[in-house]
């Protein structure tokens, strides 16, 4: 017999299970697109579905708003943080262990990004990977910003890595690290749609004048 109850008491009678505690979940603040047809969650509406918007500027802004589903997705925002510390996971919690961008956006002297983030995802440890893993520069921070602010920022060469608008089509539509957002590995929800669909939205947005949504 086990004779080691801490104060020698036997469980007595009575009943019941404890009420559930509500857990707050972190709202991601994804802006609803005003596309003619709203794409289901996890999908992107194609550029042609915005053809019904006659006003070019409004259509352009709507295209960007649809693209915003990607830009404000945790897969993207987590490494475009407002501070020097990236975020992590679908809830965009602060990155653990507590790494910072360091001098080159690749971590501090003792905690370098590629030390853990290897050239591909490692699902047994649920750690994402890509050969170019790094933090977006400070001036490209998106976290906490409205889509209108992100739009203005993404067009500003001083805050988009000196990219022309056409470069953005390439960057979002074809860059390997950006593409990781659609294949993020176990335990993480991919960005909506596909990288090609996101690229098509950027192209249509640029073509339609690269207008920004109203603030």
């Amino acid at each position: 017999m086990i004779a080691s109850l801490r104060n020698g008491i036997l469980a007595s009678a009575a009943i019941l299970a404890m009420g559930g505690l509500a857990m707050g979940s972190l709202a991601m603040g994804v802006l609803a697109g005003h596309a003619a047809e709203t794409a289901p969650a996890g999908r992107l509406a194609p550029p042609q579905s915005f053809a019904g918007i006659a006003d070019t500027t409004a259509r352009s802004a709507a295209l960007f708003t649809e693209l915003g589903k990607v830009l404000t997705n945790p897969r993207c925002v987590n490494c475009h943080p407002a501070s020097d510390r990236p975020r992590q996971g679908d809830t965009s919690r602060p990155h653990q262990p507590p790494v910072t961008r360091g001098a080159d956006g690749m971590g501090s002297d003792s905690l370098r990004c590629p030390t853990c983030h290897q050239d591909r995802n490692y699902d047994p440890g649920r750690v994402p990977g890509h050969p170019g893993w790094h933090l977006a520069p400070r001036e490209m921070a998106w976290e906490g910003k409205s889509l209108a602010e992100i739009c203005t920022q993404i067009k500003d060469p001083d805050r988009n890595g000196q990219r022309k608008l056409d470069d953005l089509i390439e960057h979002i539509g074809k860059d390997g690290l950006v593409g990781w957002a659609w294949a993020p590995g176990a335990g993480r929800t991919p960005a909506p749609g596909t990288q090609a669909e996101a690229g098509a939205l950027v192209a249509a947005w640029v073509e339609s004048g690269a207008a920004c949504p109203a603030p």
Partner: peptide, 8 residues
Amino acid sequence: RTSPTCIV
């Protein structure tokens, strides 16, 4: 440098 081994 150091490296973790559980995720590599």
